[in-house]
Amino acid sequence: MDRTTATHSRSRIMMVEQHQAFSVTPTGGALGAVVTGVDLSASLEAELVARLREAWLAHQVLVFRGQSLTDGQLVALARAFGDPHAVEVCEYDRSGLLPEIDVISNIMVDGRALGALGSGEAAWHTDMSMFEYPAAATLLFGKEIPPAGGNTRFANLYAAYETLPEETKRRIEGRRSIHDIAYTAAGTVRAGFEAVEDKTQGPGAVHPVVRTHVETGRRALFLGRQSYGYIQGLPVEESDALLEELWTHMTKPEFVWEHAWQQGDLVMWDNRCLIHGRGSVSSGARRMLRRVTVRGEKPV
Results as ranks from 00 to 15, higher is better:
154 F>N: 07
155 A>S: 15
155 A>G: 09
155 A>F: 04
156 N>I: 06
157 L>Q: 15
158 Y>A: 07
161 Y>P: 02
161 Y>T: 08
162 E>W: 05
162 E>Y: 06
163 T>E: 15
165 P>E: 14
166 E>M: 09
166 E>D: 15
167 E>S: 15
170 R>H: 11
171 R>Y: 05
172 I>D: 03
173 E>V: 00
175 R>F: 01
176 R>C: 12
177 S>D: 02
179 H>K: 09
182 A>F: 04
184 T>P: 02
184 T>E: 14
185 A>C: 13
186 A>T: 14
187 G>N: 11
189 V>M: 08
190 R>A: 13
190 R>K: 13
192 G>S: 09
193 F>N: 10
195 A>K: 12
196 V>Y: 03
196 V>G: 05
198 D>T: 06
200 T>Y: 00
201 Q>F: 01
202 G>T: 04
203 P>D: 07
204 G>V: 11
205 A>Y: 05
207 H>P: 02
209 V>D: 02
211 R>V: 13
212 T>D: 07
213 H>V: 10
214 V>A: 13
215 E>S: 12
217 G>Q: 12
218 R>E: 14
218 R>H: 12
218 R>W: 05
219 R>I: 00
225 R>N: 13
226 Q>S: 11
228 Y>I: 08
228 Y>A: 13
228 Y>L: 11
233 G>Q: 10
235 P>M: 05
235 P>R: 04
235 P>D: 14
237 E>I: 11
237 E>Q: 14
237 E>W: 00
237 E>V: 14
238 E>Q: 15
241 A>P: 03
241 A>T: 10
241 A>C: 04
245 E>G: 06
246 L>D: 03
247 W>N: 03
247 W>A: 05
248 T>N: 13
251 T>P: 08
252 K>P: 00
253 P>K: 08
254 E>H: 14
